[in-house]
């Protein structure tokens, strides 16, 4: 790790002021990606702003048919939250499958979404459930939030405050893990929502995306069988030593069918 100055603001206002004054600074949420990155000297921020002391960024509320999760809420808290389990069990289950228990005890939803790792789970939840990301400046629908590999619509100095997930009629997430890293090689979240079926795919491509052909098929008939014969295209999908694009394309179908089946 290179040396840096450490800041721990006590309020969102203080944090926004700090980041506005120093746009090269890194925001430290749960640190489960940032700290390994710093340890490997892959980033050299002069300042690190720890959001861990800001009470207003923490907590889970159910309001108006939505589950609203503060940006600094840990994955483990979402996974074990009775409210989340009741309102959107698929979201609790997804959070309970991120990383490992120790990662879940530190990693946060805001950090995960802001990082937009192509193999992370939360982006699939945000996109698949049609979440709204509330920031220090505005509200961004998930459909417009994830713009590319490790890229989001967040502007300089913009801090995620909370994420609101409208409760779907039913939803499920299925993940095929990289056997080594345990990140998603393919993760598919299927949700039947008030505004139709949404199918979000993570792990497979440079960024989380919606599988619109599957959404159309499931919109006609919400059953695993509706996806039979439907193949995700391998073009543009990720390929690495663990999985080719063709295999990922196949797994998208398998995980999507299993997710539909798991919706019950």
């Amino acid at each position: 790790m290179y040396a840096f100055n450490y800041h721990r603001p006590g309020s969102l206002a203080e944090a926004t002021k700090l980041i506005a004054a120093n746009t090269e600074a890194k925001l430290l949420a749960g640190g489960q990606t940032l700290i390994p990155t710093l340890k490997q000297r892959l980033a050299q921020p002069g300042d690190v702003i720890d959001l861990g002391g800001i009470a207003e960024l923490k907590g889970i509320k159910v309001e108006g048919g939505s589950v609203v999760i503060g940006a600094m809420t840990r994955h483990g808290e979402v996974a074990s939250s009775a409210e989340v389990k009741k309102a959107i069990p698929a979201l609790a289950a997804l959070a309970g499958g991120i990383g490992d228990p120790q990662v879940r005890n530190l990693g946060t939803i805001g950090g995960s979404i802001a990082n937009s790792d192509p193999a992370a789970d939360y982006p699939a939840a945000a996109l698949g459930l049609g979440a709204t990301i509330h920031t220090s400046k505005r509200q961004i629908p998930a459909d417009k939030f994830f713009t590319g590999m490790f890229e989001t619509a967040l502007e300089e100095g913009e801090i995620i405050v909370k994420v609101a997930f409208p409760a779907p009629k039913r939803a499920a997430y299925q993940k095929f893990e990289n056997p080594a890293s345990r990140y998603a090689i393919v993760g598919v979240l299927v949700a039947e929502t008030a505004n139709g079926v949404r199918v979000a795919v993570t792990g497979a491509a440079p960024s989380v995306f919606r599988w619109t052909e599957a959404e159309a098929a499931l919109g006609k008939s919400f059953a695993a069988g509706a996806l039979d014969g439907l193949k995700a295209k391998a073009d543009g999908l990720n390929a690495d030593i663990h999985a080719s694009a063709e295999y990922r394309a196949h797994l998208i179908g398998v995980m999507a069918r299993r997710a539909v089946a798991a919706c019950g």
């Binding site: 700290i35 390994p36 861990g52 005890n105």
Partner: peptide, 22 residues
């Protein structure tokens, strides 16, 4: 690897992935 796991405020965390300041 988890060789560094300790409890912080009662929860297990990887102490190699947390600043002392945190």
């Amino acid at each position: 690897c988890g060789a560094c796991v300790v409890h912080v405020d009662g929860r297990s965390v990887k102490s190699c992935t947390m600043l002392a300041a945190q």
